[in-house]
């Protein structure tokens, strides 16, 4: 009897504190914040300086995807011919079937061009059966939203900044950009 009463006291105490400071969130009405590292659906990033995608369509993400949810093709970059861009090739067509994607983040890990990110998008239910097959413009749209929201810096640039900062802290002069 005593132990049951102890349990009831615990419930009562929690009710009182719970009224003052509820832990539940009214989810659909109230947006749940996600952590900075949250892995939502993958999206493609946009190079604002040259105004073209980072993606060159090299397909390394596709080869490493465990579920084969992506497809892509590349083309010659017209901006490279004009001398505006250093990318010789550029993505022509890109599609991700988000229904197949398992949000593992392997594509991001293996991308050599900082071109793909795990965005914070996760509420993308649709009514149509193939409504979750997103094409290049839609992916770039999600990517831009993510880049704006998180002040995205390309991971390779970020790693370089960190390495330089570590070197500066160690008392060595920061090296020029050739490694």
């Amino acid at each position: 009897m005593l132990e049951s009463l102890k349990g009831m006291m615990l419930t009562l105490a929690s009710t009182v504190t719970g009224l003052r400071r509820p832990v539940t969130q009214q989810y659909p009405k109230q947006a749940t914040p996600v952590k900075p590292r949250f892995m939502g659906f993958p999206a493609l990033t946009w190079d604002g300086e040259i105004s073209e995608p980072y993606c060159t369509g090299c397909m390394v993400c596709i080869r490493n995807c465990p579920t084969q949810c992506m497809s892509a093709s590349m083309m010659d970059n017209p901006k490279h011919a004009d001398g505006d861009s250093s990318r010789r090739k550029i993505v022509d067509y890109f599609e991700i079937n988000l229904n197949r994607c398992i949000l593992c983040g392997i594509c991001v890990e293996y991308c050599n061009f900082d071109a793909i990110v795990m965005s914070h998008e996760h509420e993308m239910s649709t009514y149509a059966r193939n409504g979750d097959r997103v094409d290049l413009p839609a992916l770039l749209e999600i990517g831009k939203k993510y880049q704006d929201a998180t002040d995205w810096i390309p991971p390779t640039v970020l790693a370089k900044q960190k390495a330089d900062a570590a070197k500066a802290a160690a008392g060595e002069p920061a090296e020029a950009s050739d490694n």
Binding site: V34, K35, R37, F38, M39, I102, G105, I106, M118
Partner: peptide
């Protein structure tokens, strides 16, 4: 777990 790995359950 979400803060560390980016996912609540399927961490990879």
């Amino acid at each position: 777990f979400e803060a560390v790995s980016g996912a609540r359950m399927m961490h990879n």
